[in-house]
Design a binder for these strands. Structure first.
Lengths: 241, 241
DNA sequence: CGCTGGTTTGAAGGTCGTCAAGAAGGGTGG
DNA sequence: CCACCCTTCTTGACGACCTTCAAACCAGCG
């Protein structure tokens, strides 16, 4: 039988923050016991919903977002392997955002109360989860800066820099390439732009020989050039500096 | 001698989430023991700083923000009385944003380790602090939506709606009026606009007979009209619905 | 009374959105 | 294997929103 603990993407992620004991790993493994397949497009949490669950994303891509009365939508984040979604909403009782699968995905649905129990039983685990939550919030803050104060070109470059770094940390990207199943519509809703302008911006990045997005694959041609254009400082993504 | 506990703005805020015991209140009061006066303009935390403190704002206005290489600045939030700043950064080790006083202010500087001790000693207090942190993050998320998907007019209206609600909760605003010492430059850095466009937007709000900002005072002329324009749903600000 | 920080207004230009339509993929069924 | 679909991408023209630059005005304060 394979070691269930080393299979846990969540354990892998939290281990970058602090070394977890056998018991703590078991608790995490227990949390991720039953995996649920989720078809592309399915909505798992709806804004305003109460009594919802926390999700640990195992495979696939997803997004959390808020919708506006006029039908517009702002994507808050793109959770990937090992990311936790909805932890914050547990304390607020009502979910403050929606959560959908963008591709076929696999998740664990965990009761909020179960998480609470783990945290009180294993305080170090609680600290690790808090660290993960802090990192997620730092990402939202950077997203805010990105939309508020950077041009479409810088903004898009910064977005892909961050994504590349996150995917690299979980082994889903190389120095120069990674899979990225995000349509230009989806990118637009994340970047606060129109899909049409996203298209123009991607073309410009391509013509500047910085980055290409083609057939759901991002290829990075000039990493220093991109970092420079985006003003990217990825410190908020790593546990140790 | 006056009851020190009832004097604590932080205790008042956390009490809206759950009723605190005598011991828990004492712990909070202890945390807020020594108050420090801070002159207007002083920077308390610098982006990238390590070993920094957590602050509880007692009086005055402040802002947390990030700066860009080109000198631009994005304001993340405006902490007011009873708000906690820098809690997240304790876990990330390095502060991911800066923090400055906008007016003369009074704060408590609390060591991160001291907070940790309180939390482990009084788990319910920890839960209350987490709730406050969740609420703060929900505000950042709403800020993101605001900048990403609303026009300057809607955005500005929404900003003042949220501010009015927050100030009302701590007793610093009436139905129709509150003090607001934010210059148009500062507003611009918060709203992702130019100060010049903020000016035009404020004029439009004034001409629409919705809201006036004059001599550091906001007067609300038409609350339903503003809510409607902004698409404001304040649920994320309250503990109970 | 003059200084200083903040507000107000105008004119011109650029970034980004809107509308419209065509091209390119990727999957499905014949 | 090809025809057909649908989604996604791509491009062009035009206009709106917001920025930039420049200058005048106002209010508080020494």
């Amino acid at each position: 039988m394979p070691n269930a603990q080393s299979d846990s993407v969540l354990a892998k992620k939290l281990s970058t923050f602090l070394r977890l004991s056998k018991d703590e790993l078991n608790c995490l493994a227990d949390m991720q016991r039953h995996r649920v397949k989720v078809p592309r497009g399915q909505q798992l949490t709806r804004e305003g919903q109460t009594g919802h669950k926390v999700f640990v994303l195992q495979e696939g891509w997803a997004c959390s977002f808020k919708t506006l009365p006029d039908g517009g939508r702002q994507i808050i984040s793109f959770p990937i392997e090992g990311d936790i979604v909805g932890l914050r909403s547990v304390l607020l009782r009502t979910a403050d955002h929606s959560f959908s699968a963008l591709t076929d995905a696999v998740v664990n649905a965990v009761e909020g109360s179960h998480i609470m129990k783990c945290v009180t039983e294993y305080p170090r685990l609680g600290a690790a989860l808090l660290w993960a939550a802090s990192r997620d919030e730092a990402m939202v803050v950077e997203h805010l800066v990105n939309i508020g104060r950077r041009s479409a070109l810088e903004r898009t470059a910064h977005f892909f820099m961050e994504l590349a770094e996150r995917l690299t940390l979980v082994g889903l990207a190389t120095e120069t390439e990674f899979a990225c199943p995000l349509s230009q519509f989806v990118l637009a809703d994340a970047l606060g732009l129109t899909s049409i302008h996203v298209n123009r911006t991607l073309r410009e990045l391509r013509e500047m020989k910085l980055l290409t997005l083609r057939r759901r694959t991002v290829t990075i041609h000039d990493l220093p050039g991109l970092r420079n254009l985006a003003g990217f400082q990825g410190g908020y993504l790593n546990a140790r500096d």
